[in-house]
Design a protein around this nucleic acid. Structure first.
Length: 657
DNA sequence: AAGCAATAG
DNA sequence: GGTTCTATTGCTT
C-alpha cells in the first residue's frame, strides 16, 4: 500500500514545485500545497444553427424554425420542438407534424463556423485552455481561475452555487472540491452571460471535476441553464445513464462489442471483470472503458487552436458522369481555396474522398486518396492566385479520382469531399517537412513578425449579434470573478486594427522565435500594444509566475509565457519524468503497474473510485499531441509548438533555487 | 505518409 | 441504424 501510485521523491517534488499554484508566489516564497481536483466546464449552445439563423433574422424567433440540409432537419428551435419536431427528422415528417414550420437551408456552414469560433475565442479570452467539440460545444479547464479566485478572497466559505446542483443536493459541508466547484459555477454563469451579451447566444453549462462528468451533467436542465455535479453524485449520474451508448466515447461499434460480452448498461460495465474487457479490447481501451463507466476521466482539456484540416463536401443522389464529377470538384475547390486563403496557412496535402453507391450493402463507407500539394500550388493558394490554384488542384483531384474510380466503367457515387490538411503557417523554406532550423532551440534573437494577412470577418466582426451595442464589460457583470483583472483580454469585439479570419479568429498570426513557432493567439491578444503587454495583459499570467519577475524578462519571452503553448509545455514537461518511472506503466493506464487489474476490479466500486482519484493526482499523465510515444512528428509543431529546450530555459526564471 | 475506422456534434 | 457536413484521433500499412 505504501508504494501504490507513488512516484519517486524527485518526481514528486518537481511536480509540486512547478504545478502547485502556490509554488511560486509574488513574494517568491516557495510553498508546498497538496494538488486539488480540477474544475472543468462544458458549454453546449442551444440548437446552435437555429440560434445563428434567428440572430441573422430576429423575425424567426417566434416561429417554428428548422435547419435543413438536403432532405433532413439537422436541428430546430424550441418553438418547433414544442410542436413535435425533432433533430434529424426528415423534412417530410417534420412538415407533417408542423405545417407552419419555417425551413432555412443549412448546407453552407460558413456562418455557423464563424460564430462557433467566436464562441471559442470569447472563452479563450478568459483562459486559453479551451477545447472544441464540434461547432457548438467547448470544454474549459478553469482550475487556475478558481485557484486564483480562492487565493484572492481567502474568506470565501460563504460561496454559494450558481444554477442547479445535480440531484438538488445542498452540501452541508463544503469540502475543498465542492468549494472549487461552487466558484466554477459562478465562472460558468458569467461566461454564459458574456456569450449572451456579446454574441447573443444562449446555452447550457456543466460544471464538474472532469470532462466526462461536465459533459454528462451539462444537459440536465435545458435550455439555457447550468448544473454542477458534486463528487458525491457521480455514481448517481453514471447509474442513471442506462444504455452504454450514452457514455461519451462509446460509439456504435464499441457498444456492439460490449453487448457481445453481455453488457448493455453502465452498471454492467462497472461490474464487469477487467480481464474480460482486456481480452476483447486490450488493456488501454479496457481500462478507459471501465473508467468511463465509473465516471473517471483524466483526459486533459487540450487547446484546440486552429483547425488541422479544412474540407468541403457535397452529397447527392447520383453522380455517374466524369464531367459532373469534374464540375463538382471544381465548385468545391473554389470555395475551399477561398477559405484556405483567409486562414492564411499553406496546405501541404490534399485529399479527395468519395462515397460509392452500393446496391448490395446499404453499408457504404468512404474511400479516399491523398497526395502532397506541390509547393508552387500551395503558394498560389496563400498568395491569392486562386483561379490558377483551383485549376491545378482540380487536375490533381482528378488524378486521385482515377485512382479510385474506373471511369471507363459505370460508376455511381453519392458524395465528394475535398480536404486540405497538413496545414503549415508559412513555408518552411527547405523541402516542407521541417527545415533544419526547427531542430535548433530558439535563438536569442527577437521574434520575427509573420506577415499580416487580414480579412474582415463578414458577419460578426464589428457588432455583437444581439443587436444592442457593446457596453463596458464592467457594467455587464454583476460579480467580478471574470472581470478584466482575471481576463486575458477585455476587448472581444474586433476593430479594424484587430482583424479576424474566416474562423472568426486570426490563427495565422503566430509568434515566431528563432525560426520556430511557439504559439498562436486570438487576434486581440496578438494585437496587444507593447505597454499592454506590461500592464493589463500581465494578469493573464499563471498564478505561479511572479509578475515582478515577469516584467524583467525580454519581451519575446514574455509573449511565450502568455501563449497556450507554454501552458501546455509546462504540463508536458511535468508529465514526462526525467527518469523512468519506478514500475512499468502503460501510458494510457491509470492503474499503476504493480496493481493487479483483476484484483482491482473486484474491489467495491467506491473503493475503486477513490483509489483512482488518488493515483490520478500523483500521476497526471497528459495526452498532449506533442508528447507521443516514439519519434517526433513534424505536424505537431504546427499545433503544439512546445519547444522542449525553451521550456527548460524558461522555467529556470521561475524555479526557486 | 497514406488510408481507414471510430467517434463526435 | 442512416440521413448532413464537417472535424479529430488512433490504428495499420
Amino acid at each position: 500500500m505504501d508504494n501504490i501510485g507513488e512516484d519517486s521523491e524527485d518526481d514528486d517534488s518537481e511536480w509540486i514545485d512547478i504545478c502547485s499554484p502556490a509554488a511560486v508566489t509574488a513574494s517568491g516564497v516557495n510553498k508546498i500545497t497538496t494538488p486539488s481536483s480540477r474544475v472543468i466546464l462544458h458549454f453546449d449552445l442551444d440548437c446552435f444553427y437555429a440560434q445563428v439563423e434567428m440572430i441573422k433574422n430576429p423575425a424567426l424567433r417566434e416561429l417554428p424554425l428548422g435547419i435543413q440540409q438536403k432532405y433532413i432537419l439537422v436541428t430546430c428551435n424550441y418553438v418547433a420542438r414544442e410542436r413535435g419536431v425533432t433533430k434529424l427528422m426528415s423534412v417530410t415528417d417534420a412538415k407533417e407534424k408542423c405545417p407552419e414550420l419555417v425551413l432555412v437551408k443549412g448546407e453552407d456552414l460558413t456562418h455557423y463556423r464563424e460564430m462557433s469560433y467566436k464562441v471559442t475565442e470569447l472563452l479563450m479570452s478568459f483562459c486559453p485552455l479551451v477545447e472544441r467539440l464540434g461547432f457548438d460545444e467547448n470544454f474549459m479547464d478553469v482550475t487556475e481561475m478558481v485557484e486564483r479566485k480562492l487565493a484572492d478572497t481567502p474568506k470565501s466559505d460563504s460561496v454559494s452555487f450558481k444554477g442547479h446542483v445535480y440531484n438538488n443536493i445542498t452540501p452541508d459541508t463544503k469540502t475543498p472540491d465542492n468549494l472549487r466547484l461552487a466558484v466554477g459555477s459562478h465562472i460558468a454563469a458569467e461566461l454564459r452571460e458574456e456569450m449572451y451579451t456579446r454574441l447573443g447566444l444562449t446555452g447550457c453549462a456543466g460544471i464538474a471535476t472532469n470532462k466526462l462528468l461536465a459533459k454528462l451533467v451539462s444537459g440536465t436542465f435545458k435550455p439555457n441553464q447550468q448544473t454542477v455535479l458534486l463528487p458525491e453524485s457521480v455514481s448517481d449520474i453514471m447509474g442513471c445513464l442506462g444504455g452504454l451508448r450514452r457514455v461519451p466515447g462509446v460509439g456504435h461499434q464499441t457498444a456492439k462489442r460490449l453487448q457481445a460480452l453481455g453488457l448493455v448498461g453502465v452498471l454492467d460495465l462497472q461490474m464487469c471483470p477487467i480481464s474480460d474487457l482486456v481480452t476483447e479490447f486490450g488493456l488501454p481501451t479496457a481500462q478507459r472503458l471501465k473508467n468511463l463507466s465509473l465516471g473517471l476521466d483524466n483526459s486533459p482539456v487540450t487547446s484546440s487552436g486552429a483547425p488541422q484540416s479544412l474540407s468541403d463536401e457535397d452529397s447527392f443522389r447520383k453522380m455517374s458522369l466524369t464531367q459532373e464529377v469534374l464540375d463538382k470538384i471544381r465548385e468545391l475547390l473554389s470555395s475551399l481555396v477561398k477559405r484556405m486563403q483567409k486562414d492564411g496557412r499553406q496546405p501541404h496535402t490534399f485529399r479527395l474522398t468519395i462515397r460509392r453507391h452500393s446496391a448490395t450493402n446499404k453499408w457504404f463507407s468512404r474511400e479516399s486518396r491523398q497526395c502532397p500539394i506541390p509547393n508552387h500550388i500551395g503558394k498560389k493558394i496563400t498568395s491569392g492566385f486562386s483561379d490558377e490554384a483551383v485549376s491545378q488542384l482540380v487536375s490533381l483531384a482528378m488524378k486521385l479520382f482515377d485512382k479510385m474510380v474506373d471511369s471507363s466503367a459505370a460508376f455511381h457515387i453519392t458524395l465528394i469531399n475535398v480536404c486540405f490538411c497538413n496545414l503549415q503557417s508559412r513555408s518552411t523554406g527547405m523541402g516542407g517537412k521541417g527545415s533544419i532550423s526547427s531542430f535548433f532551440a530558439r535563438s536569442t534573437s527577437s521574434p520575427r513578425k509573420t506577415p499580416k494577412i487580414s480579412t474582415q470577418n463578414q458577419y460578426y466582426s464589428s457588432q455583437p449579434g444581439c443587436g444592442h451595442s457593446c457596453t463596458d464589460p464592467h457594467i455587464l457583470t454583476d460579480t467580478p470573478i471574470t472581470q478584466d483583472k482575471q481576463r486575458l483580454v477585455t476587448n472581444t469585439t474586433s476593430s479594424p486594427e484587430a482583424p479576424s479570419s474566416s474562423h472568426g479568429f486570426t490563427w495565422n498570426k503566430r509568434f515566431v522565435v528563432g525560426g520556430e513557432e511557439v504559439g498562436n493567439f486570438p487576434s486581440n491578444v496578438a494585437e496587444c500594444k507593447p505597454q499592454e503587454t506590461k500592464s493589463s495583459v500581465i494578469h493573464q499570467l499563471r498564478p505561479n509566475v511572479d509578475p515582478e519577475v515577469f516584467k524583467l524578462l525580454p519581451e519575446d519571452i514574455q509573449k511565450e509565457l502568455l501563449s497556450p503553448a507554454y501552458v501546455e509545455s509546462v504540463s508536458d514537461g511535468l508529465s514526462k519524468s526525467p527518469r523512468p518511472p519506478p514500475f512499468p506503466q502503460s501510458s494510457d493506464c491509470e492503474i499503476p503497474g504493480n496493481v493487479d487489474p483483476t484484483v482491482f476490479s473486484e474491489l467495491p466500486l467506491d473503493v475503486q473510485r477513490e483509489l483512482m482519484s488518488e493515483w490520478k493526482q500523483h500521476k497526471p499523465v497528459l495526452k498532449s499531441p506533442s508528447f507521443r510515444k516514439s519519434g517526433r512528428t513534424t505536424t505537431d509543431k504546427d499545433r503544439k509548438p512546445a519547444a522542449k529546450n525553451s521550456q527548460t530555459n524558461l522555467l529556470k526564471f521561475f524555479k526557486p533555487n
